[in-house]
Computed example of a mutant assay.
Amino acid sequence: MEGDFGDRSVKFIGSHGRYKLEANYRSKTHVVNTGYYASLFDTLYLFQVRRDKVAADDAFDINEFLRGHRIVIVFKLNQKSDKEYLVKLIEEDPRKGISEYPVIIEGDLGIL
């Protein structure tokens, strides 16, 4: 799965229940998350086990800090076409609410 989430571009690679998620922030911070995933119908659940900052900017970003301390991430998927999906997620900042981003998914994520 690949997509642009506004302040970061995200690439998700998963196989047999394990995943690696790379996020490249516009602030030149590069983060790699690893863990386990499960998909059921139109929902993708990520359970973060490890988070590494490969490159970091000196500026403090509260949203990035909050993302680093969450363990469970839930994405709702809505299929637009063959490989194009719309991802909904609850942002860390309550002022942003629920955000929607277009993504491209190659392969399958289980029962979708």
Rank of each mutant, 00 (worst) to 15 (best):
G3A: 06
D4E: 05
G6I: 06
R8K: 07
S9E: 02
V10D: 12
F12V: 02
S15P: 00
H16N: 13
G17A: 05
Y19D: 03
K20Y: 06
E22L: 06
A23L: 13
N24L: 04
S27P: 01
K28T: 12
V31D: 11
N33R: 15
N33M: 13
N33G: 03
T34F: 02
Y36H: 11
Y37K: 00
L40P: 00
L40E: 12
F41S: 10
T43R: 12
L44R: 01
L46M: 07
F47Q: 14
Q48V: 15
R51G: 10
A56Q: 14
A56C: 08
D57S: 15
A59E: 07
A59N: 03
I62D: 11
L66K: 10
R67H: 07
G68D: 11
H69N: 05
H69L: 01
I71G: 01
I73P: 01
V74M: 02
F75M: 03
K76C: 00
Q79E: 12
K80L: 15
S81E: 12
D82M: 08
K83E: 13
K83R: 13
Y85Q: 12
Y85C: 07
K88M: 12
L89R: 09
E91N: 10
E91P: 00
D93L: 04
P94H: 14
P94L: 13
R95N: 06
R95V: 04
K96W: 05
G97L: 09
G97Y: 09
P102M: 09
V103C: 13
V103R: 07
I104V: 14
I105T: 08
I105H: 06
E106S: 11
G107H: 14
D108Y: 14
D108H: 14
L109F: 14
G110H: 08
G110P: 04
